[in-house]
Simulated scan of single mutants.
Amino acid sequence: MCTSITLKTKNNQHLLARTMDFSFELEPEMAMMPRHYPMNFHFMEQPLADHYAILGLSKKLNTHFMADGVNEKGLSGATLYFEDYAHYISQDDIDENKIQLGPIEFLMYVLATCETIENIIELEKNVQIVDLFVDFIQRTPPLHWVFVDQSGRSIIIEPRTDGLRIFENNLGILANSPDYEWHLTNIRNYINLSQSSYGPKTIYGQEFKPFGQGSGTFGLPGDLTPPSRFVRALYSKLSTKLPDNPTDLVIAASHVLNSVDIPKGSVVTQRGTLDYTQYTSYLSLSDLAYYYRLYNSFEIVKCTFDYDRIDEDEIILY
């Protein structure tokens, strides 16, 4: 479970933000992967040791992985769960003429090698997402991805039965299952929502007034399912005034994502674990900064690239 949004300032400075909702304790570390840090990918014989630097919260498994991040060229991306809908290539059906990547590796490879959305679209033609078991969660994770570049263009990539599908992320919203096309159809159920409150209405000579302000939001879903979080995030984004600068942009995005934040105890999985918002991240493309807030803190922390160490070959933990 996760929700992501894109947002921009009045002068078109862009940001990708997301909630990281998960039922396995991540305990992430803030990290920068310098340009010559050897990035290991399961299906590649040699590590990728010459790439763009990447900034983000990292989880150490057999190697460091990021579920979202921004690279030095201002390309940002996030990984979200896609339960029951993600479909990968079997390891028995690999095309040796293409690049093979595990689901949790795809985001990392894109940020390491691409500068723009166009670069990703070209890369996608030569990539296979291959079924790859992850010990940490004892399964192959079902995922889809959202990316934004400095121009503000954003795409969603979903691994479906007919291959990788790319959608222009014009709404700037992504949640979890069902697929993106389903969410677009579902929006038609909520086109009555309005920032404006209803006026009084007279019925058979009797005047009725709404209870205070906010009557235009009547019917806005309040549950924590992906379809409801998608709609709620979209409404909050649409009704948010465009900020003036990157700092106010992060603040605006935090208020939008507060509407889909999952407190501990609100969602219990069938395994008996708590699915909650472990962190919220804000990837600012204008100042190449990674902001984040952990569950146990109201403080938003800002991290930037350490350009004095950007050419090193060991991961840098902040």
Rank of each mutant, 00 (worst) to 15 (best):
I54R: 03
V70R: 13
P210I: 11
C2P: 14
P221D: 04
I156F: 00
I157C: 10
M66T: 03
Q46P: 01
K98I: 08
R271N: 15
V110T: 03
D21A: 08
V134G: 07
F22Y: 15
D261Q: 13
L164K: 07
G219M: 09
A289R: 10
R153E: 15
F305Y: 07
A112K: 00
M33D: 13
R160F: 05
L132W: 02
K8V: 03
P159K: 01
F298N: 02
F133S: 07
I137V: 15
I54S: 04
S58H: 08
T202G: 03
Y292T: 11
I120A: 06
M39S: 08
Q13E: 15
R271T: 14
A175P: 00
Y204K: 10
D162Y: 08
I121V: 14
H51T: 04
Y307F: 07
H64I: 05
F136K: 01
K73N: 15
L285D: 10
S239R: 08
T161F: 05
N119D: 15
I137M: 12
L111G: 02
F65E: 14
P226H: 10
F298T: 09
E72A: 10
N192F: 09
M20T: 10
D287P: 14
D313A: 01
F208E: 00
S284F: 03
L257V: 04
S239D: 12
S76P: 11
K302P: 13
D131K: 02
M33W: 08
R18M: 09
F298Y: 09
V268Y: 03
E118D: 15
D275F: 05
I310S: 02
N176H: 08
P227I: 00
G212E: 12
L101E: 11
R139K: 15
L123W: 11
M1I: 14
H36Y: 11
F65R: 03
P142K: 15
M39C: 01
S236G: 03
Q128C: 10
V70Y: 09
L164H: 05
T9G: 10
D308R: 00
Y109W: 15
K59F: 06
S286H: 12
R160L: 13
H87F: 09
T247G: 08
S58E: 08
E29C: 13
L57G: 12
L132E: 11
Y291K: 13
I155L: 13
N12Q: 15
Y290G: 11
D306C: 11
N169F: 13
Q100V: 04
S266V: 05
D21H: 00
C114S: 10
N176Y: 09
K125T: 06
A253I: 11
G199Y: 02
Q206H: 09
N189L: 05
S196Q: 10
T225W: 05
Y291W: 14
Y88V: 05
L193Q: 00
L220C: 07
S177Q: 13
V231C: 01
R232S: 02
I251K: 14
Y290V: 14
I120W: 06
I117K: 02
G152W: 04
E124P: 02
H14E: 09
S228W: 05
I89Q: 06
R188Q: 12
S239C: 14
N170R: 13
Y290Q: 09
I157V: 15
S236F: 00
V256Q: 01
Q138M: 13
G56L: 14
I121G: 00
L107Q: 07
L238A: 10
K98A: 11
V130E: 05
F106C: 02
R188V: 07
Q128K: 00
I310Q: 03
A49K: 12
T3C: 02
F211G: 04
M32K: 04
V256D: 02
L234I: 01
